[in-house]
Design a protein around this nucleic acid. Structure first.
Lengths: 151, 151
DNA sequence: AAAATTGTGGGTAAAAGTGGGGACTGTGAA
DNA sequence: TTCACAGTCCCCACTTTTACCCACAATTTT
């Protein structure tokens, strides 16, 4: 499987349409049916999962017992902020306004590859996010990746 | 299989008619015969099951031991509050007043996709519901989904 | 250099969401 | 029995949103 990576600055037009970078589009498997599922990301961004990836999560959700109060709360929270969008003839998706608002996006978007999904950020917001960690990249990396490459 | 998801604010007109969002309508299988079964949801909302899904629940209900007092109570409550409604020419359903009253709905409705059914909420009520959980979303998520993606 | 792909914008027909009139039905009161 | 009334259902109509098409400059590939 191809993982999403890289960052590109793209624009959302007045109709809310957003072009998906060609490189990232190539990582879309045919099973995704040219469809992404938008959802609220961790931190202030919009996450877009290819449909086939999203289905794997959904199957887990479907197993939850809806008669359990906590499960219901979890499902409603996740699902209320999920929506399928399909690529149009120009390989663009329509991003509903409420998602743009959530991430503070207006006009320009930073599209970031994130392994199994892509993220949409307000460009300055993303810069700030990268720069504001007190710990350095090297410090965090050594904590997160104890034994890279499975060795 | 397509699961219900997303949230949309729609309106119930003076005749009690409610349009079903197109995206959710597309998740309706032909076996549902354009019919939903309304019932009381868990928490203060109205649940609408596609007819074919509802039949599966009915099979479960049929297995309950009617000599058990709690089972009887559960069955009577659920069944007394169940009613079939069919989509009209404009893809709307007629929501009887008692359901609107139960959920406190008047004019505007928040329609929420919930895996195998959709829920109708009074919009503010839903906002409050999402925001007032004592535990944070992250806490609940980690409790509910111990092993996300089945890994 | 030519050809194909990519990123962006806009016009227009179709679909979606909303509202209302009028016929039909069944109920209860006169 | 007849009438008034409420509740449905079936059309029609209007506005907004979305989907689909075409266009074009910039970039990449051949």
């Amino acid at each position: 499987m191809a993982f999403y990576k890289g960052q590109e600055t793209y624009s959302v037009d007045s109709k809310g349409r957003l072009n998906i970078p060609a490189k990232m589009r190539r990582a879309l498997s045919p099973e995704a049916l040219n469809t992404f599922v938008l959802t609220r990301g961790s931190d202030r961004c919009v996450a877009a999962y290819p449909l086939d990836e999203w289905r794997r999560y959904e199957l887990e959700y479907a197993k939850l017992n809806q008669y359990d109060e906590q499960s219901r709360f979890f499902l409603r929270t996740v699902l209320a902020w999920s929506e399928e969008v399909e690529l149009d003839g120009q390989q663009r998706i329509m991003v509903p306004k409420k998602y743009l608002d959530f991430a503070g996006i207006d006009g320009k978007v930073m599209i970031v590859g994130m392994i199994d999904h892509i993220e949409l950020w307000q460009p300055e917001e993303f810069e700030i996010y990268l720069s504001k960690s007190e710990a350095s990249y090297e410090q965090v990396a050594s904590q997160v990746m104890q034994r890279p490459n499975g060795q």
